[in-house]
Amino acid sequence: MSDSVVVPIERETDIVCARQKGRALAAAAGFLSTDQTLLATAISEVARNIVSYAGKGTVTLQTVQEGGRRGLSIVASDNGPGIENVELAMRDGYSTGKSLGLGLPGAKRLMDSFALESVVGVGTKVTMTKWLR
């Protein structure tokens, strides 16, 4: 089994914690400093969404191996209110809060793969992966 870290997210300081753990895991997996920052930023975005909209959740960080390539996978999940319109949420500049509305689409651009599942009233789960180049 590869390394995996679960970071409970509740407060803003937890976002920093998730980001730092992500950076450390990425460095250990062999990601270059630029990619470490991109990963940390993506983690920051999804973790911040948890704090802003769900209040409480977790970010799971895991180094993964598939075929011959290695990468880092990030799963952010919460039992919050869920996202009503997933398509709209992925659009640049759309926000139900008072943010720039770049969090989710931005995180998608920072990563290689990105999946958003959300059920209203049940919760939201973002799964994203970045591969080592």
Binding site: T34, T37, T41, L102, G106, A107, R109
Partner: peptide, 14 residues
Amino acid sequence: LSAEVAQSLVALGI
């Protein structure tokens, strides 16, 4: 602004 931060800001679309 470091190179890394600049790249991630561009990727974020800011």
